[in-house]
Design a protein around this nucleic acid. Structure first.
Lengths: 339, 339
DNA sequence: CTGAAAGCGCTTACAG
DNA sequence: CTGAAAGCGCTTACAG
């Protein structure tokens, strides 16, 4: 039962060849659908029959070594525990199809994978690489040659084709919304990971807030890992100060942070949105059912994965990308947490 | 920039060998740390130096082909979009360490991977296989020979070593809790995937409910995919009927289902918990912040992944498992949704 | 259209 | 302790 996986009854091309009475070269051609003008109808059906009979599956390792490339696509991402990411993956899988195997390189929550670790994965000779929410130094270190597409990597377009989210647009909508609701002093709970997208979210929000007459004091910007508990604790520590300073709204870099704020606010008896308005980014599925429901900047997660997969596929198949740089829209969804 | 990944400046063992003035056999021995009594100190340092100088990394494909096994561990799971699963993965990664690469075989939400698809992955010659929440027919089809550990596979212990959750315990606690709160008629929202864990949850709950004097009519048991929207729609359709029948509580197979019920209840103006008590399974991080906070059977996701990884590692390293069957505890967390 | 052969990069008995 | 050599399973020019 527990012999090495696959060591058992491995059916090789040689076995198929001898059963079909042809060479392994012919088996390879048939198995890979490269018969066009190279294999007789007769041999094709002979080989197909033998393949079916023996249950032959082309060995991925042998094939990869001969070809120089495997059928693996590696997706590098910093935060798999974020439900947002699950949708991205779903999109990637759909556009990649079943020819490619998706290998997830995940790290512990909030940590970013080190280029060194990824280099080990490169020894698997992946057909392509997808990097979600990278930072410049990581890409600098990595220096990959080969099909590579970046997801959610604003400002890093120089490194590779990328699919970005126009988070700035939603961030500005959010600032305008808060201003229209009469807020003057706002706090910001950022993510500690130095990921570009979070910087864009914050910068765009701060910029627009400023234009709208909202002030966000430096002392009212805090950072935590993307974790409900961590955000709750950070908010608990900061709130007395913010309250004294007249803060009436807090914007969070992710909905996950916002959940922590909501949680702690309930514990602390802070009424939301009357006493404090709360908003986030991502529009996770839970934001519609949170208490109260959460105002959030909606980001198209599945389309993000879908587009990135399509672009990578083009690259892997040797096609020239028509549009190497893609941007998807974001928009504000107003709910109960901002009144 | 976009040549085949890894095709560039590939450093081979032969290059290291010639720089160090040794054979590739020696390079291999050093690179794999198998020098014990087989390579002179002199050559060891020579090779190490050359490896560092050239930045040599053992090629995974070549190595796997020669060894007959890769360093890939495949994790097969039906529902990656469930945040519960993200924690399981984190646990697996931690116990597996960096020697093994974790390859996720994910399917579309609610779908279970077909054995056929997984067989393709087996062509990658994984070092081990982890299967989360399988059903018997899948395991029957798969018939894997090699390191295999099942997660959350109650009743399937005959197929392989497994790590299970004692969901029945929590389910019974939940039934007792509802009975103690005075509920007499309860509905159940199940998952459509015929996964064993959901059957155990339901069976244990129904059994204990019955002993506690709670009746759950067959007509009051419905199923949906694990999706907030689907659960919301199903609840919307069922509620008028349930209400007429005097149902005062609904138990959901997962918290995700419960969020859908909460969401729809708000739309329909059903007061929770006064008019209807709601509870789920999983105790996702969002259950503490939902509206109202959700009573749920807590399941130890991270420990589940951790233990499964440990067991698999033992198997892959050829060790005999001291305890092939492990069970982790579950327990009820009572929150606002049940009063 | 077909097959013998080289080669992908590594590991592992084997002989020395 | 060391290296030449075989072999892992496949693919791809190449010669026919």
């Amino acid at each position: 039962m527990h012999r090495a996986l696959g060591r058992t009854q491995r059916v090789t091309a040689a076995m198929v060849a001898s059963l079909a009475g042809v060479s392994t070269a012919t088996v390879s051609l048939v198995a890979n659908g490269k018969t066009q003008g190279r294999v007789s109808e007769d041999n094709i059906s002979r080989v197909r029959q033998a393949i079916a009979e023996l249950g032959y599956v082309v060995d991925g390792i042998g094939s990869s070594l001969a070809k120089g490339v495997s059928s693996i696509v590696i997706l590098v991402a910093p935060d798999i525990s974020n439900p947002f990411f699950a949708k991205v993956i779903a999109g990637v899988r759909e556009s990649l199809g079943s020819e490619y195997q998706l290998l997830l390189s995940v790290t512990d929550a909030g940590e970013f994978p080190r280029a060194e670790d990824v280099r080990k994965l490169l020894a698997l000779r992946p057909a392509g690489l997808l990097v979600d929410a990278p930072n410049a130094s990581f890409l600098e270190d990595l220096s990959v040659a080969g099909p590579l597409v970046l997801l959610d990597a604003p400002g890093l377009e120089a490194y590779a084709p990328s699919v970005n989210l126009d988070v700035a647009h939603g961030a500005r909508e959010l600032a305008a919304h808060l201003a229209a609701s009469g807020h003057k002093r706002v706090a910001y709970v950022d993510s500690v990971t130095g990921t570009a997208t979070f910087e864009v979210r914050r910068a765009a929000f701060l910029d627009e807030a400023n234009s709208c007459g909202i002030s966000v004091a430096d002392a009212h910007i805090i950072s935590t890992t993307i974790d409900v508990g961590a955000a709750a604790a950070a908010f608990a520590a900061a709130w007395p100060d913010w309250q004294r300073a007249g803060v009436t709204a807090v914007v969070c870099g992710t909905d996950t942070h916002a959940y922590g704020v909501l949680q702690e606010a309930r514990v602390a008896g802070v009424r939301i949105p009357e006493e404090l308005a709360v908003a986030g980014f991502d529009d996770l599925p839970y934001s519609a059912t949170s208490n109260p429901s959460l105002t959030s900047v909606h980001l198209p997660a599945t389309p993000l994965g879908l587009k990135a997969g399509e672009q990578l596929r083009g690259l892997m198949e040797g096609r020239e990308l028509e549009q190497p740089q893609l941007t998807l829209e974001s928009s504000l969804v107003v709910r109960g947490s901002t009144g």
